[in-house]
């Protein structure tokens, strides 16, 4: 128990990163059921957006991070939207084809990043107001950049929950996801909703990418490091269940941090993975599912 408490800040920080990477997938994979293997490259694109704003356009690091967030959201959102429009929508009934195609597109995006920015990693300097950290008791320190990611993640979750539950478009999205035909005969333009869902899901990948520049270098394969974990978070949380995704991300983050405190990184990964497999054996539908009379 002590081990968990001392690792709590690290666990929360890892969980926040996982969650940020998974939030976009919660839309495209969790809700629409599309396995978009290029999602990791959208995250990478978001990270390079932050790099370009600072290194090419020369924005002051003091605020370039804050500008990068909406810019990356728009750029990766548009990329994802174009991807849906041109390719993915033709393969909704064929998940395997979608998987392979988007994997290929991910490769192309990686190569494009290599051609544009070079193979070596680049660094995006953090703003001065995020250097240093908060010292908690017992010499546990938490970096301001981690705190910022945690706050950003919480803000994103609140915004998404608000969008889904309170806005007109969010309601339409939930209706289409629940029953496409019923939504169509209710007067909802389901094609438009699909495109919007993809835009938002992909845009969130861009935000995750910007956040990742705060905790490490940016390279063409940045996204691949996170994509498997992000898919796992969505599956463990219960497809398309925001609450589940949040809970799963932080649980996995804390589990990761705790296990890593006494095992080496690859053993820790194995243990976490085994725990997930065991959990999904016991509860294949994930943490949360939609309640209906038929199920209760």
């Amino acid at each position: 128990m002590d081990a968990i408490i001392s690792q709590l800040p690290t666990g929360l920080a890892i969980g926040a990163v996982l969650l940020l990477a998974a939030l976009g997938l919660n839309f495209t994979f969790g809700q629409m059921g599309v396995i978009n293997m290029a999602h990791g490259e959208l995250i990478m694109t978001g990270a390079y957006t932050a790099y370009v704003l600072h290194a090419w356009i020369g924005l002051n690091p003091a605020y370039s991070l804050l500008i990068a967030l909406p810019v990356a959201f728009t750029i990766t959102g548009t990329l994802g939207w174009l991807l849906e429009l041109s390719i993915i929508r033709h393969f909704y009934a064929r998940p395997l084809d979608t998987l392979l195609l988007t994997f290929g597109i991910g490769m192309i995006l990686q190569q494009a990043a290599r051609d544009t920015f070079g193979a070596p990693n680049v660094d995006v300097p953090a703003p001065a107001w995020l250097t240093g950290g908060l010292t908690l008791t017992d010499g546990i320190r938490i970096h301001y950049s981690r705190l910022f990611i945690l706050a950003l993640t919480i803000a994103c979750v609140i915004a998404i929950a608000h969008y889904l539950n309170r806005s007109r478009q969010g309601r339409q999205m939930r209706a289409v996801i629940h029953n496409r035909d019923l939504a169509a005969i209710t007067g909802i333009n389901t094609r438009k909703v699909d495109a919007t869902t993809f835009f938002i899901g992909s845009g969130l990948a861009g935000i995750a990418g910007v956040a990742l520049t705060l905790i490490g270098p940016t390279g063409p394969t940045l996204g691949t490091n996170y994509i498997v974990d992000a898919f796992l978070v969505v599956v463990v949380g219960g497809l398309g269940q925001l609450r589940g995704t949040v809970l799963a991300a932080f649980t996995l983050g804390i589990l990761n941090a705790t296990v890593e405190a006494w095992a080496d990184a690859s053993l820790a990964k194995l243990i976490v993975f085994a725990t997930i497999v065991a959990f999904l054996q016991a509860r294949p539908q994930g943490l949360f599912t939609v309640k209906t009379r038929a199920l209760t």
Binding site: Q172, R174, N179, L182, K291
Partner: peptide, 24 residues
């Protein structure tokens, strides 16, 4: 059109079911 089998948007509340249709 109200299809056979009284389908509704199960995860939405009754009020949301009505609003989503009206606004659409």
């Amino acid at each position: 059109y109200a299809p056979q089998g009284h389908d509704t948007f199960a995860p939405l509340t009754v009020a949301e079911n009505l609003h989503v249709a009206h606004q659409a």
